[in-house]
């Protein structure tokens, strides 16, 4: 039973980590390799506002999210826009930005285990006899909430619909008068905000450490690549696949295999089903 519950928590953690990356890639085909850095940046900013500036917790979170969103906009408008359509340059540029952010944070003092965010509500409940702290329950609802929000956003709002249109057929979108660059800016910055949301929900479970930025990036890539890019269903399914595979390896083999497992799954999926779990012919052609 605890396997199932922790599996679900783990899977939703992965969804949270990867949804921003998947969104930015799915919509604007920008592989935002600064994703992990934005994640850590949001967490660290929240910490700074909370403990250095002494703002209330909720205000720190909102401020951090706004700043990360702005960083996302700047990232696209000043840097990525100049290398659009050159995937390798996009990767190098965004990874460079991420690297700069992470290592700057490390240099400016984000080291050791001193940086922690408090859980929103502390305490534990027992569900089916499995102890589960409230923060993990918030993780579950946060993940579901984000998915619902995304679904509503891309189904009912005009901006969301235009994002979807661009994702499906950029040229047709352009003909219909959708500004692809604006859509991409929105997507990248929304992706950054999602990274921030994930950070404030997930980081209370552990320390804010720079290494986590790299891990988040790898997990985000893992989920997006396995799921078939631009496919929500795929991303969710891949999260559950990887999440449960990790939980199972952790409880039956050894805890330090959990990262190995994620990497192993990417390699296997890319080799045997290069279009991803839900990828379509179009993606297959893109990849092979």
């Amino acid at each position: 039973m605890d396997l199932i519950i922790y599996g679900i928590v783990n899977s939703i953690t992965l969804i949270l980590m990867s949804i921003g990356f998947a969104l930015a890639y799915g919509v604007s085909r920008v592989p935002n390799f600064a994703h992990g850095a934005l994640f850590i940046l949001a967490g660290y900013l929240t910490w700074v506002f909370r403990y250095r500036v002494d703002l209330p917790y909720w205000l720190s979170i909102i401020l951090a999210l706004i700043i990360v969103g702005l960083v996302g906009i700047a990232l696209y408008q000043f840097i990525l826009i100049r290398v659009r359509g050159m995937p390798i340059s996009e990767i190098i540029a965004s990874f460079g930005v991420g690297l700069a952010i992470l290592e700057f944070l490390r240099w400016s003092g984000l080291r050791g285990t001193a940086h922690m965010l408090p859980p929103f509500i502390s305490g534990t409940v027992r569900i089916f006899d499995v102890p589960l702290d409230y923060q993990r329950i918030i993780v579950i609802f946060g993940g579901i909430g984000i998915l619902l929000f995304l679904w509503a956003f891309t189904t009912f709002t005009k901006t969301g619909l235009s994002l979807k249109a661009i994702a499906q057929n950029e040229r047709a979108g352009l003909v219909l008068g959708i500004d692809a660059d604006r859509a991409a800016t929105v997507a990248v910055s929304l992706g950054a905000v999602f990274a921030g949301v994930a950070a404030v929900i997930l980081l209370p479970l552990g320390n804010i450490v720079v290494e986590m930025g790299y891990e988040v990036l790898v997990f985000a890539i893992a989920v997006s690549v396995c799921g078939g890019l631009g496919s929500w269903k795929g991303a969710v399914l891949a999260s559950f696949l990887i999440g449960f595979a990790q939980t199972i390896t952790v409880s039956f083999v050894a805890p330090h295999y959990h990262f190995v497992m994620a990497l192993f799954i990417i390699i296997i999926v890319l080799i045997f089903k290069p279009s991803g779990l839900f990828g379509r012919q179009k993606e297959l052609e893109e990849r092979v």
């Binding site: 840097i79 100049r82 190098i92 540029a93 460079g96 690297l99 700069a100 290592e103 700057f104 240099w107």
Partner: peptide, 13 residues
């Protein structure tokens, strides 16, 4: 590393 990364972004962009 920060210096590196900035240089990298500068050259690639």
């Amino acid at each position: 590393i920060v210096f590196y990364a900035v240089l990298l972004v500068f050259f690639v962009v």
